[in-house]
Amino acid sequence: MDRRDFLKGAAIGMAAIAIPPVNASASYLETFFQKYYREMTPEDKKKVVERLEKEYREKYHKDIRVKTTEAIPGVLYGYGLDLSRCIGCRRCVYACVTENNLSRSNPQIQYITVLQFKNGEKWVTDLEESEKYYNPETVPAPDHFYMPVQCQQCEDPPCVRVCPTQATYKAEDGIVVVDYNWCIGCRYCMAACPYGARKFNWGEWNVPTDQINTNTHYLGNRPKIKGSVEKCTFCIQRVREVPGRYTACVEICPVGARKFGNLLDPASEIRLLIETKRVFRLKEELNTNPKFYYFFSL
């Protein structure tokens, strides 16, 4: 075979690859050529939302609303968690799973991990010593305490720095979000995150149809794509509204350990607790500058 024949063959081969499969719908092509969320015009977003909502209706026979609500100007979300109060009951974990439409199995995805520590043992300096699979009859177990960990919404997020496609980025209101359609599934961000906050969709998204939360956001709890990374978004579909609801984990906590508010508002509970309580942020030495403040009220 001479060079010319080889090139001809290669050209034909490439062309064959480029032609979409026979059953390709317009929706498939639109998905394939969809733009990066941050570069979309409002019209682009509207089109994408219409396409997604149609897709979801066909797939799940349910009207799932996909919002593209923008950040509220002058808002920087912050979170407080009272470690003196947390009893490790895991109510927050499943309120989050329910609110954010997280895959129930294969693999199971949960944004919040509650860690159990023994009194007097190694603690924040060595999270490897913690117990994630504790299961006593009742909590709090004697001589143990608990620390829930989720995305810390860093001001200098290492996950964003490593993303080769910029699919994950920090929004104006401080929430680190993922454009699931732009994510290529390389999982660099998962390796970069010091908090283990990012989860990967190894399998198809699976939530029983009757359990789907139909109030969704493009950057939040909409049905996920296999091979994309997801994470806590401070319930972006709830909080980016005026008035916006508290996050699901705040509302479920039976001991009122979880606090949420605007860091730029001096009268918000998050600002007051930062100013008056003993506060620390997880792995501060990494200079990730989290907006998630652990505190002790006792």
């Binding site: 895991r90 309120a95 699979y133 504790y134 039976p254």
Partner: peptide, 29 residues
């Protein structure tokens, strides 16, 4: 309180049989 179920262990295969709902302060999770 009784804690809600622990997460599935990694590499444990398909261990989730299904889901059930619990009512907490009027909220179904």
């Amino acid at each position: 309180l009784k804690p809600l179920p622990m997460p599935a262990r990694p590499h444990s295969g398909d261990v989730v049989k299904g889901t059930t709902s619990v009512d907490i302060e009027g909220k179904k999770i």
